[in-house]
Amino acid sequence: MVATEQRPAAPERRRRPARQLTRKQRENRAGLAYLSPTFLVVLVVVVVPILWTILLAFQRLRLINIRRSGLFGDFTLRNFEYVFTSPGFWSSLWTTLVYTIGGTAFSIVFGLIAALALRRRFPGRTLVRASVLLPYVAPVVAVTFVWEIMLSPQFGVTNDWGQRFLGWDRPIAFLSQREYNLWGVDIPLALITVIVFEAWRYFPFAFLFILARLQAVPRDLEEAAVVDGAAPTQLFRHILLPQLGAVIALLSVLRFIMTFNKFDDVWLLTGGGAGTQVASVRVYEFLTSRLDIGAAAAQGLVLAAALVVLLVIYLRFFAPREES
């Protein structure tokens, strides 16, 4: 009786781990299969091109002979030598950094202010919220053109009004003047204009995420503080800001990466002239006007490497620690 009860139990015990393993394997296989189209696209359009760019950066190649050349040629460091020593490299890197930090900081600060202002309900809030997002969703080509025309010295509304109401003695070429003397100080006018555009176009992005986080802050937390007589600035400093820390940190990183690699906005506004030659515009110029693929690839890699270094520094020293 005892023996017959034990006998069927034994194979059962042996079989169970085996069956679990096959289920796991099945799931593993399904997971990889479902993700394989994604892998394939990313591999073909992103990973392989990046690896290839690395190879290209170490070869002297021009657009004319690339159709004939193979994957591997004579490897050399001359592209990097050329990139580092060519005039304007360091100033372009500096411009990129100023542009990125300015664009990131202003877009987040304005996004935060907008989110705080639109936080509570009021009639028409949905409509206002939607219109605030417009700069971000509108096509870049269209909005850069409007800005160009608004700021135009000949027929732009800004200069017309500036001369009529603000007493400007002559029109200001916002997008094509490298330096402007403001109260005795030279300011990089075109670069500042481009940064302002960047802040205008991307503050809705910050706004959207900060607003979503704000609305998840527990009501009773704030109500308790208000009962204790906390002023709005104290409320913001001690209740809201700690809650927003993580999303602001994430936004900073995201916006920093996106702005650092940005091409279209600057290209369409100034063509990279008047002291606004950011690094990605430089890559484009190496590629299209000098037809120098090797140098373009090397410049692009230097750009990516600089970005990685900055991100590592940020994550190592400045990123807010996860509260345990």
Partner: peptide
């Protein structure tokens, strides 16, 4: 599945490299 936790690194790579860099090859 194997590598599930590593997937987001792959995605990060897409945004880390400037679009213009992918454009060359």
């Amino acid at each position: 599945f194997v590598g599930r936790r590593q997937v987001h690194f792959l995605f990060l790579a897409i945004y880390l490299f400037p679009a213009i860099l992918l454009a060359i090859p």
